Amino acid sequence: MSVDRTINAANTTSAVAPNLVAAPHGLQRVWATLGRVVAFAIVELQKLQHDRTELVTRMVQPALWLLIFGTTFSHLQVIDTGSVSYLAFLAPGIIAQSALFISIFYGIQIIWDRDAGILAKLMVTPAPASALITGKAFAAGVRSVAQVVGVLGLAYLMGIALTINPLRIVAAMAVVVLGAAFFACLSMTLAGLVRNRDRLMGIGQAITMPLFFASNSLYPVDVMPAWLHTLSTVNPLSYEVDVLRALLIGTPFHAVDVVVLLVAPIIGIATASKVLRRLVA
């Protein structure tokens, strides 16, 4: 009798036991991760709805660079840019610079998420840290696309000879997304290291202008002193500007520029993902 009861109890237990769902693997895991990346990116982009004027106000600085700095140095003719006008030479650099200024402070948002308790909740979800970082990084890149549109529109109004080929313009947008994604990852890595908004703001301000001036955004590398030329070769912004110039004004194309643009965000995502947990530790 007791044996029958034991068997019946076992059968009852097995009948009500929950069915375990196997974790996704292979292509299912890849698609699941991509879905989470897209979801995180959409959440970031939806924040623009709360301040739609941001896209307009961020155009002020690049417009000033083109209208004041660009036209002044173009008239002075102190920088030799060969057969290309200085304004045409400058415009791709200003596009890269404006995207840099958007993304280099992106780590502040992740510290805000930490302080609001949002980051801790996200870190206990099944989504890997790399999905969160990737989503935020490419959201920064998509935000930067507006800068491409704005600078190109202003350049056309100023009569600057830039390409009107739609495929090249779309490719330039993709380049800006990759560049902005890397610098957003750099910012989030710094956020994980310093874990403080004020410190991160100070570091961002300290490195933004050196990154800009130690690149080929404003002047060709040929006119740089040797030490600055060396810095420009290890500056990812220089490679981004090179590709933008190749697409927008037809300067020579170098495969190494594309390789750096593709590899840099991958390294940035991996590094930022490693230090992200320091924010919630």
Rank of each mutant, 00 (worst) to 15 (best):
I95L: 06
I95F: 00
I95W: 01
A96L: 05
Q97E: 13
L100V: 10
S103Y: 05
I104K: 06
F105I: 11
F105G: 12
F105A: 09
Y106L: 04
Y106M: 11
Y106D: 11
G107N: 06
I108L: 15
Q109H: 07
I110F: 03
I110K: 03
I111G: 00
W112V: 07
D113R: 01
R114Q: 09
D115P: 05
A116G: 01
A120W: 08
A120R: 10
K121I: 02
K121W: 00
M123Q: 07
T125H: 02
P126C: 00
A127G: 11
P128I: 08
A129L: 08
L132D: 04
L132A: 02
I133F: 09
T134D: 08
G135R: 08
K136L: 07
A137E: 11
F138R: 10
A139K: 04
A140C: 14
A140K: 00
G141W: 08
G141V: 05
R143T: 12
A146F: 14
A146G: 15
V148G: 11
V148F: 10
V149S: 11
V151F: 04
V151K: 03
L152K: 06
L152M: 15
L152G: 08
G153Q: 15
L154K: 10
Y156V: 15
Y156L: 12
Y156I: 13
L157C: 13
